[in-house]
C-alpha cells in the first residue's frame, strides 16, 4: 500500500490502457489495492473520463465492503 500520488495514479490509468465505462469497476479495484482507498480526486477524474457522475461512483463505492472512500485511520 502506498500514499496516494497523482503520478502513481496516472500510471495505473496507463496500465489499463485508459479508463472507460466498461473497465471502470475493475480499475477502481486496482486503485483501492494501490492506495487503500479511492480518493475524491480519483472519483472526479474517472467521472470526467467515463461520463458517470461523481455521485453515482461515490454511491457505488460505498456499497462495497472492500472499497473505502476515505483513508482509514489506525486509531
Amino acid at each position: 500500500m502506498q500514499k496516494f500520488k497523482m503520478e502513481t495514479y496516472q500510471n495505473l490509468v496507463k496500465d489499463v490502457g485508459g479508463v472507460t465505462a466498461e473497465n471502470l469497476f475493475m480499475f477502481l479495484g486496482k486503485v483501492q489495492e494501490a492506495f487503500g482507498y479511492v480518493p475524491r480526486e480519483v472519483v472526479r477524474d474517472v467521472a470526467a473520463r467515463t461520463g458517470f457522475s461523481e455521485t453515482r461512483i461515490y454511491g457505488a463505492l460505498t456499497s462495497y465492503r472492500d472499497f473505502k472512500v476515505r483513508l482509514e485511520c489506525d486509531d
Binding site: 461512483i57 461515490y58 456499497s63 465492503r65
Partner: peptide, 15 residues
C-alpha cells in the same frame, strides 16, 4: 445517491 451499507445506509451526496 444511497450511500453506505446496511446499517449505515442513507441518502447522501457524493462524499
Amino acid at each position: 445517491t444511497f450511500g453506505g451499507r446496511l446499517g449505515q445506509l442513507e441518502v447522501s451526496t457524493a462524499f
